[in-house]
Design a protein around this nucleic acid. Sequence first.
DNA 1: TTCCAGGGTCCTA
DNA 2: TAGGACCATGGA
Length: 282
Amino acid sequence: MEPVVHTLSDNTFHITGIGLFDCDVVFDCGQCFRWYKESEYWIGISGTNIARVMTIDDGIEIVCAPDALEYWMHYLDIEYDYISARDALRGDSDISTLVDISPGIRFLNQDFFECLISFIISANNNIKRIKSIIDKICKTYGTQIDGMYTFPSASILAQCTDSDLRALGAGYRADYIIETARLYTDGYDYEPLYTRDIVAARAELTFFKGVGKKVADCVLLFSLMRKDAFPVDTWIRKVMHDLYDDTTLSDSAIGQLAQERFGANAGLANQYLFHINRTNLK
DNA sequence: TTCCAGGGTCCTA
DNA sequence: TAGGACCATGGA
């Protein structure tokens, strides 16, 4: 089934034929930190584009500038066949029930640099506080557009001092943000990461300061469409230890087991395990 | 007061 | 290569 775009007005579109897109889950499951809900719409900004998104039958309603629709189609990962991916996961006895509990989980293709910095901030942190720190950084160093703030450019963050970012709550991650921004502005090209072997892609990202295997996998999964990535955080570690009845499994071993078991759908399996357990929906 | 959070770095054995 | 101390901060 192919996505179908219905134009309702000059800035309102319905996209159908994509199965369930559960906005309440997609925008609040820990993959992004800057979307908020107002009435029935979720509102977000990426680059200089602003969109309002709402779940409808078999798809979404999106309100945005008409020339930004293609941008948002990519950002919202409309072209990916989640219906087939979910069907594949239903063949796994431990995941099948989770798919039915929350079938509308999907991924976003976020801006690479924003995603990279956001997950550096996520290290040993909680989602509420991550959102707070990113919000302060955007309000301090971003540009205001229609009441919202852009994510600051790498060149702006590269000029910050350690104390600048510590004052916004970044703590010891301030230096990681600055060093990563400086390296990025030197001319980093992330395009090869779309197709590179997952192990090599992960290793390359860990070259950035403050980026380990877990953060690298988050960036690959949440901004570069790498659905074979499997981030291992504290929640996933607990779930996998429980699943395999082995609390001695290392993070590397967990990642290896996930790759072998879920393959190209490892990321989606990861998100089901993370979301269902974190929100205690079992 | 202690533990914990979508962990990473650095040092040591 | 593996394990452990340390790192900021605020909510539970």
